[in-house]
Amino acid sequence: MQGEPLLKIENLVKHFNVRLGAFGERGATVHALDDVNFEIIEGETLSLVGESGCGKSTTGFTILNLHQATSGKVIYKGENIATFDDKAMRPLRRDLQIVFQDPYSTLNPRMTIGEAVGEPILFHKLCTKAELPDRINRLLTDVGLPPRFAGRYPHELSGGQRQRVAIARALACEPKFIVCDEAISALDVSIQAQIINLLLDLQEKYGLTYLFIAHDLAVVRHISDRVGVMYLGRLAELATREQLFANPLHPYTQALLSAVPEADPVLEKTRQRQVLQGDVPSPLNPPTGCRFHTRCPIAQEVCAQTIPEWRQIEPGHMVACHMVPGGLHA
């Protein structure tokens, strides 16, 4: 990849302590995120994919310091922001924004659209009170909503419109980086396409960097520059879009790609699918060694014993698998 890294994620770990049993008598640790390393390049769209519980959303939340990292670093402008407290984070929140999955619950039902969009502008003192209505109008126009929506309440809007409001709100602080946490997953197909197009337009217009968290590989293929595949709290593979879809190396990536249905009945009836057996193990007690070895069709003894190294196979193509031959030494 060309360009400067905007964010560097180094050995990021996030464990949640939970209490189990009827009386919370047993303590346990959810290994939501373990030893994750990657960079987010300025101006790119990096997608994280994986099934529920793989830690992709946790990654987004931990990068933004909405979850306190257990260990590891998130480097932004030369500082490790993973250790910042709320107050230290506040000025940085302008740059680092997020759009959530469920547009029905991420807007305060008691605030009008205008208030919701205007709030971060006033809070971060980005303009004067007199300029505010103008600012709000421009933001709403940017996300394809008529400015007269400013006086409406969230419950009067459709799901797609609310997601546009949530995007306008994230844009209000003039961010550099937006985490899109399953931002289109709750929307209908025809609306999904509208929002994807909107996100792409805004990226072009404002030079935004996206961390796009999703489970729909077809969508991810459509909008990403690079894609990371996660499984049970670890990165399995990270590559450019072309590399990943043309030459998936990790057996999990291969299975995931093969499980995605194609909108083509002729192709679907002929193609051989590789269907993974079994379920994802519990993150409370993840498997030893490679976490995928319990479902992996090509697992060997070594996979159950040692954690595979995060290796570069070709420039820009990282994978964590014992069974993938070769490797570059940097």
Binding site: L64, L66, D86, M89, R90, P91, L92, R93, R94, Q97, I98, F100, Q101, D102, S105, T106, L107, N108, E119, P120, F123, H124, A166, R169, C173
Partner: peptide, 14 residues
């Protein structure tokens, strides 16, 4: 609720 997280992500104070 997610809108509280959303508000935190905007940097708003407690």
């Amino acid at each position: 609720r997610p809108y509280i997280t959303a508000a935190r992500a905007l940097g708003l104070t407690t």
